[in-house]
């Protein structure tokens, strides 16, 4: 079972937040193929092996998250 903090980050939420129980349940409902594509996309985006992400080191990804947040800002309107 993944840490809820890691799940939150994977889904675009801040690692400082815990995802709700509903989100954890949604995660647990995914097929293997769906988990695989999410993890693959995460690894491509952040250039890090997903298995190496832990509660302890996830804070180091926050700089990258800021870049992603700016990209999200670019997307408003569509």
């Amino acid at each position: 079972m993944l840490s809820t903090v890691v799940i939150a980050f994977l889904l675009g939420f801040s690692p400082t937040q815990q995802p709700s129980e509903e989100i954890v349940n949604q995660w647990n409902s995914l097929s293997q193929e769906e988990v695989q594509v999410l993890v693959q996309n995460f690894e491509n985006e952040y250039k890090i092996k997903f298995s190496d992400v832990t509660d302890e080191n996830i804070g180091t990804l926050e700089g990258l998250e800021s870049v992603r947040a700016m990209r999200a800002l670019d997307m408003r309107g569509n």
């Binding site: 939420f13 709700s20 800021s66 947040a69 999200a72 800002l73």
Partner: peptide, 18 residues
Amino acid sequence: TLAPCTVCKSFLENGMLK
């Protein structure tokens, strides 16, 4: 939408976007 921008990111970090 819950995607954080520079402003909403601060909502997020302060637990308000949730």
